[in-house]
Design a protein around this nucleic acid. Structure first.
Lengths: 204, 204
DNA sequence: AATTGAAACTTGACGCTGTCAAGTTTGGTC
DNA sequence: GACCAAACTTGACAGCGTCAAGTTTCAATT
């Protein structure tokens, strides 16, 4: 084993992302600083700037990973071969979405929060993947409309926007802990699903 | 006019709040610093600390004002004497909520955002007024349930939590500008209202 | 095998931040 | 007129993002 640490780290970029993820997971985004991060990985303060233009760029990279994970999750549900059960798919997705937000609150904040989308400047690639992510959601909504699980009274896009807003609001409720006891969240999610999926009286 | 500025400002606290509000309105929360604020008002860096324990306390005070404004808005709609029109009240409230978020995005962020509720420590008085605010919302939801505008399938509390999540999600959509063109927002709001207010088939 | 150029990394510095400690000025009360 | 508490100031410290200039290393060309 090479005891003397080499000048070149060799795997700095992935190491940085991993360490950054660990920090935000354990201490929150506000505790993540470029200097602390560099320290943790064992390089000098400015070394990270050779792999990320900005702190913003670093945060975007983390958010991007979050979208990748979430998209994969969505695709699994969308492409489930033995998806005979019309009703359950939508509820399953909602549960999965909330679970993701619950298990990765800080990443979720980066993905959808002010830090990047308002304060900072989302990377082109981040914009791209978030767009893809939403498109997947629209697809799923359209499918649910065809099945009569979601009402077809508005376009798939509008319905997707409206229902995603509901989901996002719940995630925020969960993460920020306002207006809600954490134990109640599951029941609230159920309520949201019920409110959204009540098909119109003209079913048949 | 007293040309030589006196040692005691006399109205520092309100002046600070006003200046802080102006700063966040024009430049966003991230541009608000205690030093810049003090500078703007014309006092030394640490003068504000005699009126606010913390930066956090200052932010809480601003958020509190936001809740006061919003609560007054809610009460006006709740207590409207000539409220004959069952349907419209709910939609009106939703529009008002979204308008508030649209016109005071930075204040809205403070009221419900991470900065205070996760990062910082909400003042007791802020907690109190936000609780009041939510209670008003539950009251309105209960009223709407009695009128059959909102479904009574779940308790007023759950329904309020779920529907508020939808509203909050829309506000975030609007403010952060993700997944949505600003012009579409009105139509999306309408969609949300439609989704929530479709009364169940068992109306009578 | 030596040279060269780019990439990875370091140290130093600047201006910004929140806030603590200690000192100064002021207005009101006994 | 003395005194005290409140309002306010200056100085200081540690931390932040990041730019500029220097050093080390690796890999490819000659």
């Amino acid at each position: 084993m090479t005891a003397t640490k080499p000048y070149h780290h060799g795997e700095l970029r992935p190491a940085l992302v991993a360490a950054a993820n660990a920090i935000i997971r354990e201490s929150g985004i506000e505790k993540l600083s470029m200097r602390r991060l560099a320290d943790q990985v064992g390089v000098s303060r400015t070394a990270p700037y050779h792999h990320f233009k900005d702190k913003n760029a670093l945060l975007c990279a983390i958010a991007e990973m979050g979208f990748e994970e979430q998209n994969q999750m969505t695709r699994e549900i969308l492409d489930d071969p033995e998806d005979n059960n019309n009703e359950a798919v939508f509820a399953r997705w909602v549960r999965a979405y909330i679970r993701f937000a619950h298990e990765n609150p800080e990443t979720y904040d980066l993905m959808f929060g002010r830090e990047i989308w308002k304060g900072g400047t989302p990377t082109p690639s981040l914009q791209a993947i978030s767009k893809t992510s939403f498109r997947l959601w629209v697809d799923l909504v359209a499918k649910m409309q065809q099945r009569g699980v979601l009402p077809g009274s508005h376009s798939a896009l509008r319905t997707a926007q409206a229902s995603w807003a509901a989901l996002h609001g719940m995630a925020r409720l969960l993460i920020d802990g306002i207006y809600v006891q954490r134990e109640d969240l599951e029941e609230i999610a159920e309520t949201v699903v019920d409110l959204l999926t009540r098909t119109t009286p003209d079913s048949h």
